[in-house]
Design a protein around this nucleic acid. Structure first.
Lengths: 364, 364
DNA sequence: ATTGAATGCGTTAACGTTAACATCAAATTA
DNA sequence: TAATTTGATGTTAACGTTAACGCATTCAAT
């Protein structure tokens, strides 16, 4: 493997100092156009490739962003990641991919790595609700952004941006839709309580019940973990009840599909016997044979917005107070809920107080 | 933001030279245990975090690997990526994620980036069959590995490792299975001819036809692009024929599902009227309501093996001639093919000549 | 005791780049 | 014409680390 050419090699051939070469390469001012041209042409001839490592060492910038995710096995994160990666590329950044598999110490380890490697910022797509790692980063003023899930720490809220769908509204929409279809006995399979989105979607659902004067029944609220299996278990559990719900809201599509499997396995017709709605609108949900009603969100866009904002923070073109950006969820009605309410609109009165009131913030 | 501590800061406090600190941190020999302990404890106190950039600059190693992929939208690549990322982590490497969206110039751009950033090697999961970028890298002796798809360039073959499923065998198994179910009119929706896997799976299918003395019919071979839509189109096309096939092999599951949708949309029963088999065994295929028969492959493992091998090449612990590692495909029989041949075994005589004979190599 | 190796550490340079400052000539101004 | 600015370039240092080499001191072997 032949030696890599550096700016000094170019300098020698061009009869200038290496600084001048640097100036030419980064097209700075204070250089004669002819000199610059000469240098550039030599660089091209030598097939010069700048060494970002050396550059990073002096500039303290790597043009690299860390992406911390629990797992891309969930297609929701896949699409989110795509939005992130493509936007990063457009802005001249690379993404170091870190999947934690829901383990906080792996996350910690990754964060250490990323910082050692000098990433300019980190995107968290699936923050644990009281994540200490994120706290610490926020505390130090390290550039991070929370996407999709968030923590409720005051310290974090005061310092980091957040981009996500309005999960409270989404949960509200899902349950309101079921109510409008005439359902009164509504079961919910929630996500992990470690996750803000699970919490908020559930809370939204509860608010819908309240808004329509339906007394919530304790036994109708099951906690899952966002995986299909837990939806499946939930479905089975509901069916064992003497008075099972007539409609089920699962707080993500994976669990909804699990519920679906449990139901049809027991010979229950969906939606005739029990209606079903999920959350996320992953690709699978739209497939014929599944046809899951769900709450859709713009995942790709979400990733793009987050990346853009983080880069702005990194480059200093955005310096204002932390933002909370809530994307609008969208009701996607498919077979598992019936098609009879296509022109559905969210209650306007609710919309006015739409965005999530964070009254259960963690103070420490 | 307070200044980062470096080894010189530690050195000052420990009353040693910075070199000694470096020795302690990298637990090299030629240092007194007590000194080392003292330094380490100071480092811990100061919350020292090594600067990998500076280290990389002198060591010419970044402990970072580039992952070039077309798109993770396809769940096959998702799982493959997981295997890659997790293995990399275990080996102390990070992954820079690059999705090219099937565009060779984007790929080129990414490769330049990766090299500028000094990655130690690059993994290509979806090499274009005659990819010039890969040729160039191979030519320069830059550490790369091909996973899943490969090129047929002699130069590449002579220099870079490849890990993939035995696609020829897989294609053979798929079609052989259909034949054994009694089918004679077998249609194939192939993948892009730019891709080795599409080519090889198709070729395997053809060999099965030949082995069983079935005359291949030109109009039964359709070319798709691995996306669902193209399978859908293919399905429709088949149904318009006066004498449509009685069984269809789609060279990946996405297309197979597309075919499936087209068929049920036209009221064709699967498998009663037309049998169907795919390739990859993505998660979706196992879902109730889809139940696609398919050829399975160990995607996660594939990524793991590739990563491990690449790292070995990088670190010099593997120096032999390039390897071609073929993983064994697995017949996964579900509803779309019927369950009557569960104890299926590949023809032993075929197995003996199993692995892919590369007689259509590109010489230049 | 004398030599030789091993041990523990320091000094200096190097990696490839950018940035601060210096220099000198040409151009502009007073 | 002299003084000052501007423009084009060079010199040197710095970023934080590892590596090569050197120099004492200690220890073992003769």
């Amino acid at each position: 493997m032949k030696k890599k050419v550096n700016i000094k090699d170019i300098a020698r051939l061009a009869n200038v100092s290496h600084t001048t070469v640097s100036r030419a390469l980064n097209n700075k001012s204070r250089i004669r156009p002819e000199t610059k041209e000469r240098i550039l042409s030599i660089a091209r001839q030598l097939n010069y490739r700048p060494d970002f490592i050396a550059r990073s060492l002096v500039m303290k910038r790597t043009k690299t962003i860390g992406l911390v995710i629990t797992t891309i096995a969930n297609p929701f994160y896949t699409e989110l990641s795509q939005g992130i990666e493509m936007t990063a590329r457009e802005l001249g950044y690379n993404i170091i991919f870190c999947s934690t598999n829901y383990d906080l110490s792996t996350e910690k380890q990754y964060i250490e790595m990323l910082r050692s490697k000098g990433v300019d910022g980190i995107i968290f797509t699936s923050a644990h609700i009281g994540d200490p790692n994120i706290m610490e980063l926020a505390d130090e003023g390290f550039p991070i952004i929370l996407v999709n899930r968030r923590t409720y720490h005051l310290k974090v809220k005061e310092r980091v941006d957040y981009v996500g769908v309005d999960n409270l509204l989404g949960g509200y929409m899902a349950v309101e839709h079921l109510i409008r279809l005439g359902h009164q006995r509504i079961g919910v399979v929630g996500g992990s309580s470690e996750s803000s989105v699970g919490f908020e979607r559930l809370e939204g659902g509860k608010r819908a019940l309240k808004a329509y004067g339906i007394e919530p029944r304790e036994e109708y609220f099951l906690e899952g973990n966002f995986l299909r299996e837990s939806g499946y278990q939930g479905g089975k559990k509901f069916l064992q009840m003497v008075d099972p719900p007539s409609a089920i809201f699962a707080t993500n599509d994976y669990m909804a599909i699990g519920v679906y499997q449990a139901l049809i396995e027991e010979g229950v017709r969906v939606p005739e016997d029990i209606a079903l709605i999920g959350f996320n609108d992953i690709e699978l949900s739209g497939i014929k044979g599944i046809d899951l009603s769900t709450i859709g969100q713009k995942k790709f866009e979400m990733g793009a917005i987050a990346t853009e904002l983080l880069v702005k923070r990194i480059e200093g073109s955005e310096t204002g107070p932390p933002k909370e950006i809530f994307l609008r969820p969208e009701l996607v009605i498919r077979k598992t809920c019936g098609y009879d309410l296509k022109g559905y609109q969210v209650e306007p009165k609710y919309l006015n107080e739409a965005s999530f009131k964070v009254d259960y913030m963690i103070k420490d």
